[in-house]
């Protein structure tokens, strides 16, 4: 058991390191750098940048040094909590990201809860009542859910909630609160705005999870231990919930973290469509303008959060799976 935890921890550390190298490297990949973009922008607006000025800028950001030196400097500063300056915004990266990181996590987490809250009961129902009208209905809705791109869904929901509630949707805050500091009123405002984007974000994953849960459970329902449980005289509900559902749930524990990156990348388009203050749109902008420090920091932060999430779900998996807990895995 200890070995398992240690192994997972080592894996997490190595993964974090790889993510940091990758997030730095990927940003470095495209030809040209921020200064080139800057020069091009200036040229487009009619002014020009002297070669010396460009050189000075490159020096300032360390763009003239070899890759590993740039990487080393970057990591060194991050360790001290300095993620560098956003070249585009000309403000510290952390300040630019601000609450966006937590709002992204919150949105993903809300979507995760909705995904589970919907997918598990529906999956159980569909498996237990296989080929019933309800099962077919959920299957149909599920395929629609998988097939319809979620930004389209976002637009449709936006339209209807505007028609029915007359409220402008979009964003995670009302105009009144968006620039105010945190307060209970702002938290409540956030809670009111969260469901719509969370549902939109959750639906695709929900439909898939329903299919997985249904298939897992159908598989488990045929196992001999279910017959054993029935032969004890338990009610069918008790039999199903205690035994096969428990077994079908096990793989889901390891799924928690793997959904997270999926939800974050899924949230980019939705965030753009619904105007949500998450890191997604920021990352896209940063990539387009080759705002290296900003993009690298976002990729790194999301990556690290994912690694932490994975580690936590490994712990959860160990906690729920007696085979792992007893050190047999």
């Amino acid at each position: 058991m200890i070995t398992f935890v240690v192994r997972r921890l080592l894996l997490a550390i190595v993964t974090t390191w790889l993510i940091s190298v990758l997030s730095f490297a990927i940003i470095q990949l495209p030809p040209g750098d921020f200064v080139d973009t800057y020069i091009a922008q200036m040229a487009a607006s009619g002014s020009s940048v002297s070669a010396q000025a460009a050189e000075a800028m490159r020096k300032m950001y360390g763009l003239d040094r070899p890759f590993y030196v740039q990487y080393g400097k970057w990591v060194g500063r991050i360790v001290h909590g300095d993620f560098g300056e956003s070249m585009e915004w000309r403000r510290p990266v952390l300040e630019v990201i601000g609450d966006r990181l937590w709002l992204t996590v919150l949105l993903a987490f809300a979507a995760l809860i909705i995904t589970w809250g919907l997918a598990l009961p529906i999956g159980i129902y569909s498996a237990v009542r296989q080929y019933s009208i309800g099962d077919y209905l959920f299957t149909l809705v599920g395929f629609v859910g998988i097939a319809v791109p979620n930004f389209l869904l976002a637009l449709v929901l936006m339209y209807f909630s505007f028609r029915w509630f007359g409220a402008s949707v979009g964003g995670l805050f009302s105009a009144k609160y968006s620039l105010l500091p945190w307060s209970w009123g702002k938290v409540w405002d956030l809670m009111k705005h969260l469901p719509l984007p969370a549902v939109v974000l959750a639906l695709g994953g929900t439909a898939q999870l329903v299919r997985i849960m249904r298939a897992n459970l159908l598989d488990e329902l045929r196992r001999p231990y279910v017959v054993t449980a029935r032969a004890k005289g338990l009610t069918e509900t008790r039999v199903v919930l205690k035994y096969p559902v428990r077994a079908a749930l096990n793989p889901f524990a390891s799924n928690i973290a793997y959904l997270f990156p999926f939800l974050v990348s899924g949230s980019v388009i939705i965030s753009i469509v619904l105007g949500l203050p998450t890191v997604g749109p920021l990352l896209v902008e940063a990539l387009i303008s080759q705002d290296m420090f900003l993009a690298g920091s976002i990729v790194l932060l999301l990556g690290v959060l994912t690694v932490i999430g994975t580690f936590i779900s490994d712990l959860v998996l160990m906690w729920v799976d007696p085979r792992l807990r007893q050190g047999m895995g």
Partner: peptide, 17 residues
Amino acid sequence: IALVFQEPMASFSQYYT
């Protein structure tokens, strides 16, 4: 009436003592 059957491994749930 009670039942005992073939696969003692598969006939138990592995998730409970």
